[in-house]
Amino acid sequence: MRRHSRRIFNICYRFTGNRTEAEDLSQDVFLRVYRTLGSYRSAHGGFATWATSVTRNLLIDHYRRTKRDRITDSLDDKMPVVENKESAGRRPDEQALLGELSMQVQSALTRLSPELREAVILRDLQQLEYAEIQTVLAVPEGTVKSRINRGRIELARILQQMGVRPA
């Protein structure tokens, strides 16, 4: 359980960029897994792949549910602020947790569209195979490859806009 909880927490954190939200979502994922355990079939791939699918579905639900809040937040963001945008809202313990560059990559990830974000997270941070990502996202392999490629290019451009150049 600890192994799965760590992986699920990491996916949630990379997707949301918020530790508290990631904790709450991880709990919700396990609750959903617990309730729908009867629907698990080995045809879904391994248990880990199935749990990742549940996580992904819950993250997309959460993203849609909180979209309105984010629109309001983004309007607030357009107001002139003195503090640095990247470090705003990030707690010191979170900053210590991540390295400088990792923190900027994490920050850039949250600006990606959810489709590209989830593909990049599963491939480059969770290091899943294309076939597993295909099962999790329930899309053809060509779409998976295309999303990963576009996600990486988009992420590199966002980092460039932020003035970050990975060595």
Partner: peptide, 21 residues
Amino acid sequence: LVVEMHSMDELETPPRLVYSI
């Protein structure tokens, strides 16, 4: 960027998470 992401470590789970679950 890909090299950097592959080298990013997994985060440790908060200690209370397992009990909360």
